[in-house]
Computed example of a mutant assay.
Amino acid sequence: MLDLKGMQFGKLTVIAKTDKRYKRGIVWLCECKCGNKEYYVPSDFLLNHGVTHCNLCKWKDNGGNTKVFIKNTNIGIIKSNKIFSHNTSGVRGVYLHKKTNKWIAYINFKRKRYNLGSHKNKEDAVKARKEAEKKFYGNFLKWYNIEFKNKND
Rank of each mutant, 00 (worst) to 15 (best):
I107R: 04
G50T: 01
A16G: 10
Y137C: 01
F136E: 01
G76T: 01
F9V: 09
N101Q: 14
M7E: 07
K60T: 04
N65W: 03
L46F: 02
R92F: 03
N101K: 15
W103S: 02
K110G: 12
L96H: 14
K17H: 09
V91N: 10
G35F: 06
I77R: 06
A128M: 02
D61Q: 13
H53V: 08
E133G: 07
K17W: 06
H53Q: 14
S118Y: 05
T88V: 09
G10L: 08
R129L: 12
I77E: 10
E31C: 04
I83H: 10
N65E: 11
I15V: 15
M7R: 15
E31T: 03
K120N: 15
L46M: 03
D61L: 13
K120E: 15
K98P: 14
S43Y: 01
I78T: 03
N65I: 11
L47P: 04
V94Q: 10
Y137Q: 03
H53C: 12
K82W: 09
L46S: 00
R113F: 10
G63L: 04
N121K: 11
K122V: 14
N65C: 02
I77A: 08
K5S: 13
R111E: 15
K112T: 13
K110H: 12
C57G: 03
L12P: 00
K17E: 15
I83D: 00
E131M: 10
K67G: 05
A16P: 08
N74A: 06
H97M: 11
W28H: 02
N121T: 11
I26R: 02
L29M: 06
K122Q: 14
Y137W: 12
K37S: 05
G76A: 04
Y39T: 05
T13N: 07
N121I: 15
I26H: 11
M7I: 11
K71V: 01
